[in-house]
Design a protein around this nucleic acid. Sequence first.
DNA 1: ATGACTTACCCGGTAAGA
Length: 276
Amino acid sequence: MPFKSKNLGKLSQVPNIDMKIATYNVNGINARLPVLLRWLEETAPDVACLQELKSIEEKFPLLAIHGAGYNVVMHGQKSWNGVAILAKNQLELKESSRGLPGNDTDEQSRYIEAQVEDILVCCLYAPNGNPAPGPKFDYKMNWLQRLVIRSEMLVKMSNPVVVLGDYNIIPTDFDAQKPERWVNDAVFFPEAKEIYQQLLKQGWTDSIRELHRNEKIFTYWDYFRNAFNRDAGIRMDHLLLNAPLATRLKAGNVDRNVRGWEKTSDHAPVWIDVSD
DNA sequence: ATGACTTACCCGGTAAGA
């Protein structure tokens, strides 16, 4: 048989060009471990960014996550916050930094960056900011302003970058089933929405909105009042891509069904597929 | 509807989330 040079060409390309990248606010990794493991097994993301671990490093379920086939870098904290980046164990995963620059007194674990193959993955858990106005909202805005400064540098990188996680911002009226219900909430304050617009103006692509222009997409539903069954949701978990990565965007969506599982988080996982 | 849930902490209350 003659040798098919076309196939040889494909084989010689850089591997791992196809990548599924997800973000999931787990709301307590130990309390949600069965849900997390089931989701990892069923959907097999290459990279999974987690928020609200509510766990220090010593209490992180490392054996279970390794058993599921993932390596981990994490920034933990007792009781609250905490972020982690999981990558399938055949992928190169290297932490590059943790904590948002610009405030040395910030003790809260809300940000970690890691290189996964050629992609810089930046996992965040923005402060909620309630009650607003007040000191917690001031902290939220200070944190988001630091994110804007960091993002300015990241968006210009020649390598692909994704900044993803729980932004605790509903970007527009269209991103809530019932926007009027959120007008007094920090996640829908004009100052927070303005930050999101500032980020988009820097050149980031809101990947899920880009893929679903005229579709109501939610990523969070209250535990109260049977919100999920009424689809009383909001969109707060976002995956922002710089131009080198946005050109690779192929698909993306919310794993809504996970929100319906027993002992589940109030957020659902959100994912994208990127490939050359 | 300034939460009607649900968690972590450490042991039944509080603080926090959004």
